[in-house]
Nucleic acid binder design. Structure first.
Lengths: 147, 147
DNA sequence: ATAAACCCTGTAGCTAACTATAGGGTCAAG
DNA sequence: CTTGACCCTATAGTTAGCTACAGGGTTTAT
């Protein structure tokens, strides 16, 4: 009745590997469960929710370290304010937005030099992509080289 | 006179550390330079361009491994076609775009649950952020809890 | 001539989030 | 009673891109 399952079942139920569960435990993301006489981990039903908390937090961009922090908040909900939690989340949001911007810059730069390339079956002797990387400026009508 | 400089100057000139240069050499991104009698690396002028090639390629999202590939292309430009080079670049472009999408999804999800949070100075007992992570659905008017 | 600044090799460490391996013990089925 | 599936710990390896020693030799400036 008190559903208490072993690590293999929890792993299957939550879609992660047994090793990952032990790893999360070592990282403090999962509480140490009770043990059977022979030392097997015995998880309560709630363990699955806790793993899923971790997975959802990961999915929205939190690192495991962040998640440990979130779980601390979660555990003493009463002692924390919404403000604290929201700040935490907003900081992460900004990190994500920064990463997006960085990648968008990369995309723009790479697209520019890629679009300029003929892509034809001829030797790449004058390939604009390689030239752009070598010279540091995309195309631009024959800027006579400075190096 | 044939400007041949030592690793420290190259490092300074190209804005990377000495260790990084040696590291790039070990990774095959920089050709092994000549050595002085005492075994010091002596770089030709062109070395700086090669380092800058690497840095620019990095800046547009290529990994060092990718760059090794690009340098192979660059070296045998005559033997390669623009097609090959362009495909290479387009593949990378797609990777970048995929990463952007992934991050945008994260941003949307995180923004949604963050916006729903009052952010007030009251205890986080019912904080919507923590609840969303715990339950797996953002807000939604009082879906009676399952945990 | 001596000290600082530079160079060398080789190896180890760092972060992140696992994954794998070695070398065991336990449990259920047939 | 043995086989196979499962569990345990502890340690090492993975990828990426460096960074930091340790323990030397060389060059340069004073």
């Amino acid at each position: 009745m008190s559903g208490s399952y072993k690590i293999g079942s929890l792993a299957k139920a939550s879609g992660v590997s047994v090793e990952t569960l032990r790893f999360y435990e070592k990282q403090g993301l999962l509480p140490e469960p009770n043990r059977s006489e022979s030392g097997y981990r015995l998880y309560p039903e709630s363990a699955r929710n806790q793993v899923e908390f971790i997975l959802r937090a990961k999915a929205v961009g939190f690192s495991l370290k962040d998640i440990a922090g979130l779980l601390d908040l979660e555990v003493n909900r009463e002692q924390e304010t919404c403000q604290t939690v929201k700040r935490f989340a907003e900081e992460k949001l900004m990190e994500i937005e920064n990463k997006i911007q960085e990648l968008q810059q990369m995309r723009t730069a790479l697209k520019q030099i890629t679009d300029a390339c003929c892509g034809g079956p001829l030797p790449a002797s004058h390939c604009t992509i390689l030239t752009a990387l070598a010279d540091g400026h995309p195309d631009k009508e024959k800027q006579h080289a400075t190096y």
